[in-house]
């Protein structure tokens, strides 16, 4: 009984010694067990005793806990938010693991063994040895149709997904389109309907039969789920309204990539805008390989917008 809670004095003067990757071993075991159940039941949301993390709920605590539970000293970690390595939240999470686990970090998709992401899947196909960890705000795909966990749990148990199809079809009746553009529901291995996290539906096809293991962590909602490699992931649709991804009218203004997801950047208040790659690593690698977009010409390369 000698380790009573520290007083302000000891907290102020001792540097707290945290475990590798912050979480204690008991917590890691609990999360690891949930991950294994998730893998065994693809698309099913496994409840887990999510811990309070030193970052706010809704800012990636689920992804961080999953990453902390799988990460080892030999891993190379990449963290992206909105497809970019340099967004503030990605920078903060990468810094967290550099500090608490001392792991090597990278911005290169191909170099990474563990990639934690918010809202995007990298453009380059992932490989067998890679693990993609998604930060998930609301893991329940039926939540906006039925707010009660007690109800949605029964719907999953009975595979009663009619409500979801009705919702999508109502969209078509009202708008002529399925009005869901991100967090577009998928069916995993023909059984569970799953929320792919708020990735644009553009990324949905990348989940299908991916070679990488995909793990999903929702900290605030206390759920973990998974898609094993080579697993069927089908976006919900209708025969007369097949699933289609977004297309962009122009290529990336920096690297000229087509068939990738682009961010719209406003250049002025007169309607001037440009479209650039959301996946910053993919864009940089293409430019390093000599690809040039309309606004990346050498002649204007020294002209700074500021």
């Amino acid at each position: 009984m000698n380790a009573l809670p520290p007083t302000a004095a000891t907290v102020a003067h001792d540097t707290p010694a945290y475990n590798f990757a912050y979480l204690d071993e008991q917590t890691k075991r609990m999360i690891r067990r949930a991950i294994l159940k998730g893998i065994a039941i693809p698309g099913y949301q496994v409840p887990f005793a999510s811990r309070e993390m030193p970052m706010p709920y809704g800012w990636g605590t689920g992804g961080v806990q999953v990453t902390a539970a799988v990460l080892g000293p030999d891993d190379v970690l990449k963290v992206i938010d909105q497809g970019a390595d340099d967004t503030t939240n990605a920078v903060a999470i990468r810094g967290f693991f550099r500090k608490t686990a001392g792991v090597r970090t990278t911005t290169h998709t191909a170099e990474a063994t563990v990639i934690q992401t918010r809202h995007r899947i990298p453009e380059a196909p992932l490989a067998e040895h890679q693990i993609l960890v998604y930060q998930v705000p609301i893991p329940e795909p039926l939540r906006f149709l039925e707010p009660r966990e007690t109800e949605t749990r029964t719907m999953h148990a009975l595979e009663e997904y009619g409500l979801m199809h009705v919702k999508l079809y109502e969209d078509i009746a009202r708008h002529g389109h399925i009005a869901t553009t991100y967090a577009y529901p998928v069916k995993v291995d023909g059984r569970y309907i799953m929320d792919p996290s708020p990735t644009p539906k553009f990324d949905n096809p990348k989940m299908h039969r991916s070679k990488a293991l995909q793990l999903f962590g929702a900290g605030r909602e206390k759920r973990i789920y998974a898609i094993p490699p080579h697993t069927d992931v089908v976006s919900l649709d209708f025969e007369d309204h097949p699933f289609k991804v977004q297309t962009f009218a122009q290529p990336c203004a920096l690297c000229a990539a087509e068939g990738v997801y682009l961010d719209e950047v406003l250049l002025d208040d007169k309607g001037g805008r440009m479209f650039v790659c959301s996946d910053t690593d993919n864009c940089e690698e293409r430019r390093a390989a000599g690809h040039r977009g309309a606004l990346a010409g050498d002649d204007i390369s020294r002209k700074d917008r500021s």
């Binding site: 475990n19 590798f20 071993e25 890691k28 075991r29 690891r32 991950i35 294994l36 893998i39 065994a40 539970a69 799988v70 990460l71 080892g72 000293p73 293991l213 998974a226 094993p228 490699p229």
Partner: peptide, 19 residues
């Protein structure tokens, strides 16, 4: 080395269930 040995073994178990 409880922390690292458990992590190494877990990754093998996870890999085995995922494949």
């Amino acid at each position: 080395q409880p922390v690292f040995d458990a992590q190494t073994t877990f990754r093998a178990i996870m890999d085995a269930l995922a494949r």
